[in-house]
Design a protein around this nucleic acid. Sequence first.
DNA 1: AACCAATTGTAAACCTCTTAGCATTTGAGA
DNA 2: TCTCAAATGCTAAGAGGTTTACAATTGGTT
Lengths: 229, 229
Amino acid sequence: MVESGHFSRSTFAAAGFVTALPEDVRRRLLNHGLVRQFAKGELIQQRGDAGKEFWHIRSGNVQIGRYSFDGKLSIFAVLGPGESFGEQAFLGEFPRMVDAIAGNEVTLVRIGEKELQSAITSDPRVARILLKTMANMVQQAFDLVNAGRNLSTVERVARALLGLCEGEGQTVSISITQQELADLVGVSRVSLGKALGKLEQSGNIERNYGKIVVLDPLLSRRRHHSVTL
Amino acid sequence: MVESGHFSRSTFAAAGFVTALPEDVRRRLLNHGLVRQFAKGELIQQRGDAGKEFWHIRSGNVQIGRYSFDGKLSIFAVLGPGESFGEQAFLGEFPRMVDAIAGNEVTLVRIGEKELQSAITSDPRVARILLKTMANMVQQAFDLVNAGRNLSTVERVARALLGLCEGEGQTVSISITQQELADLVGVSRVSLGKALGKLEQSGNIERNYGKIVVLDPLLSRRRHHSVTL
DNA sequence: AACCAATTGTAAACCTCTTAGCATTTGAGA
DNA sequence: TCTCAAATGCTAAGAGGTTTACAATTGGTT
């Protein structure tokens, strides 16, 4: 049985940054950016990298997470088209703090350190938007910690699925393997399988090969969540 | 047996902000601030508050966390003198995303929205420092998620203890109850007790009534951790 | 000095997750 | 159409966490 509760709205929120920028600034950034493709599974950036550019996703999706010393992958977020990542590194001094892996065929726009820097100095709104984006990330990271400590696996799986299907109504089909979803939720594939079984039994999802169909009952829960989660 | 590994340097890093500010800016902010006292256990700010001021800790310590709907407390960080919290709310739009509770008798300096705003506009370095602070928080939050997923309880307890005794050498005595530490680590008191037992047996700590003494073997591990965690 | 509330130590039953292993299904490519 | 690697479904054993309960200890207060 799935308890009712609060739900996170979007996968993760490095997201908003580029989208939230004023039209002209966004144009300038994206037009000067180098476009690059990555194949499924390719490492886009690695934890510890010194690079300071950041990336805007044009198509495909990118997994943000960390490989732990023993090779296990822990995914914090899955970002989609329109979202961006890597802004933090720009702030200097830190190396990259997460790995980024192409979840499928991905097209990215590379935005260099200088471009972002000049955007910030030329328009005071940019710094503020960046700050807001970061604050949002902190909040979502807290949600993640909290979820890991207080919610059942089924509940966390439900949240993760809701985060993966952004905005659409009715029924959404998500292309993701159970292993990937397990890495995102932070449990083993076996546990994930059980949780999916329960969600399926209760009519919230359907399991398929390489994809999961999120049904209306689950989707409608999102509409009832408090925005100030 | 405790595995060797990486350690987080400080408890949590809303920390640096005020301290990292240029001398004159810091002076100005702190001098104009209202000084307030809170008794142990008092709620300083509550999740959902609309207030936009933030706080600088002059003495005592503050627990940053969330009460979940069922009344359980999950602590994300314990901040001490010189550290600050609540900067995110200033960024506007969000309500507070965490609860802050006085861990003991606490003296805080209140810094209003206007003061911070004017500090930002008057000195471009301030925005940059704030951004850096936020980036650091994101990183530490990721560490927390990662630790929760991949580390044993003993390891997480060891980390938490190291985070609580900042900077000193040799042997440090921490005033904290097992329940508080359990809330910080995210386990039950029983589990925490077991973990502490193991750490004691291996000569890393001593357990006392209301306090824990962190011994040299554990402290020395911090020196070996990679700074770029 | 006696008392008492807070804190700590421990045990047992229960539950969930993990690991390891294997059988089955699926879908893409030869 | 056949083949095969990838993905899924499932089971069983084991580890570790939680809850509940109770006893023992501690340190401050009367």
